[in-house]
Simulated assay, not measured.
Amino acid sequence: MRNHYQITITDYRGARHFTLNQLMRHGLLTALAVLALILVAGSAIIHELTGRVGNLNDELAELEAERTRVEAERQTLAAERDQLESEVSDKTMALLALGDELENIEIMIGLRAEPERPLAQRVDTASQTAFEKRLMLNSIPSGLPLQSERVTSEFGMRRHPIEGHMALHGGIDFSAPRGTPIYATADGVIEWAGHHESSGMGKMIRLMHNYGFSTVYGHLDQIEVKPGNYVRRGDLIGYSGNTGASTGPHLHYEVRHLNRRLDPATFLRWSISEYDILFANEDRIEWESLVEIIRSKARATERPSLLPVQSWSATLP
């Protein structure tokens, strides 16, 4: 048996002879076998990884399709929500416009919600305790919402300063430089605090009080409260400005009862010293039944000292 092999390599430089013994031949064959095994295993691994990558690509494509479907559904729901909000806003504005038209007719023909009642049927303010009166002053809008008494537009029919047609001005406008502090005129909870596009009020606050009363503060420059906040009479709620449909810096202030606009003028003057003027001048509210509710609440209050009421000027900084 031969123990070695002779290999001859011939090129332009001539023939060269090499001897390869059996051990070297076996090592070379082993190396070739290992290399072949590595190549086969690598190919198998590459094939497996390629298959996994393909599966992941398929899953990624499915997830992308699902994401596209969910995004389409989200956009559809958002469009439906926007449409519903628009319909609610339109119906709300239509309702307010209807209320304005009714008030326009009442103002033009001098009609009241009910005939003038005799004095004997009015509120017996003399029988009210000081605590009952203070409780009413805390719960029902009273006093000025800012440190200014310069009224530039009163409640009632007027020519709209921007649109030019005759319309009901549902509140009172106070001349106020931008940044004038605005205060709550009664205890309550903030229902709206933000930009109100459909009303033209710009940045607006709507404050809900007890017994169906609410107040509106429009054309603000800055708002210091959020919806859901509870505030007390005299608390700072924002600063006057010139936002929305406004021709100059001012505060638009409204007083409403059951969403019906009332002339704020009497409410501005209402105080302990001029307590009877509200009941004498505003007869569209069932004051008798309201006073009875206040009286019952006052009697049920065990510690009336917890509800002090200061004069309006003292509540302002």
Rank of each mutant, 00 (worst) to 15 (best):
residue 182 I to A: 01
residue 183 Y to E: 04
residue 183 Y to P: 08
residue 185 T to L: 10
residue 186 A to Q: 11
residue 186 A to G: 13
residue 186 A to T: 09
residue 188 G to E: 07
residue 188 G to Q: 06
residue 191 E to Q: 12
residue 193 A to H: 03
residue 194 G to D: 07
residue 194 G to R: 05
residue 195 H to F: 13
residue 195 H to Y: 15
residue 196 H to L: 08
residue 199 S to R: 10
residue 201 M to I: 00
residue 201 M to L: 06
residue 204 M to H: 08
residue 205 I to Y: 02
residue 206 R to A: 03
residue 206 R to P: 00
residue 207 L to T: 03
residue 208 M to N: 11
residue 208 M to Y: 00
residue 209 H to A: 03
residue 209 H to R: 02
residue 209 H to G: 06
residue 210 N to K: 12
residue 210 N to S: 14
residue 211 Y to E: 11
residue 212 G to Y: 09
residue 212 G to Q: 08
residue 212 G to V: 08
residue 213 F to W: 07
residue 213 F to P: 06
residue 213 F to A: 05
residue 214 S to T: 05
residue 215 T to L: 04
residue 215 T to S: 15
residue 216 V to N: 04
residue 217 Y to M: 06
residue 217 Y to N: 06
residue 219 H to C: 04
residue 219 H to M: 02
residue 221 D to S: 15
residue 223 I to M: 07
residue 224 E to W: 03
residue 226 K to P: 01
residue 227 P to E: 13
residue 227 P to M: 14
residue 228 G to M: 14
residue 230 Y to F: 12
residue 230 Y to K: 15
residue 231 V to R: 02
residue 232 R to C: 11
residue 232 R to F: 13
residue 232 R to P: 04
residue 232 R to Y: 12
residue 234 G to V: 13
residue 235 D to F: 09
residue 236 L to Y: 09
residue 238 G to T: 05
residue 239 Y to T: 03
residue 239 Y to N: 02
residue 240 S to H: 00
residue 240 S to A: 13
residue 240 S to D: 00
residue 242 N to L: 00
residue 245 A to Y: 10
residue 246 S to F: 04
residue 247 T to H: 01
residue 248 G to L: 02
residue 249 P to N: 00
residue 249 P to C: 01
residue 249 P to A: 10
residue 253 Y to K: 05
residue 253 Y to V: 04
residue 253 Y to D: 04
residue 253 Y to T: 01
residue 253 Y to E: 03
residue 254 E to M: 08
residue 254 E to G: 12
residue 254 E to R: 05
residue 254 E to H: 03
residue 255 V to F: 06
residue 256 R to Y: 02
residue 257 H to V: 07
residue 258 L to Y: 11
residue 258 L to T: 00
residue 258 L to I: 02
residue 259 N to W: 04
residue 260 R to W: 07
residue 261 R to V: 11
residue 262 L to H: 07
residue 262 L to C: 07
residue 264 P to K: 10
residue 264 P to V: 10
residue 266 T to P: 06
residue 266 T to W: 03
residue 266 T to F: 05
residue 267 F to S: 10
residue 267 F to Y: 14
residue 268 L to I: 11
residue 270 W to Y: 08
residue 271 S to W: 07
residue 271 S to D: 12
residue 273 S to E: 15
residue 273 S to N: 15
residue 275 Y to P: 12
residue 275 Y to Q: 13
residue 276 D to L: 09
residue 277 I to R: 15
residue 278 L to R: 11
residue 278 L to P: 10
residue 279 F to D: 01
residue 280 A to T: 13
residue 282 E to D: 10
residue 284 R to L: 03
residue 285 I to S: 07
residue 285 I to N: 07
residue 285 I to Y: 08
residue 286 E to G: 10
residue 287 W to D: 06
residue 288 E to D: 11
residue 289 S to D: 14
residue 289 S to R: 14
residue 289 S to A: 15
residue 289 S to V: 12
residue 291 V to N: 08
residue 293 I to Q: 14
residue 294 I to Q: 01
residue 294 I to V: 15
residue 295 R to H: 14
residue 295 R to P: 01
residue 295 R to N: 05
residue 295 R to F: 00
residue 296 S to C: 03
residue 296 S to K: 12
residue 297 K to C: 01
residue 297 K to R: 14
residue 298 A to C: 06
residue 298 A to I: 08
residue 298 A to L: 06
residue 299 R to C: 00
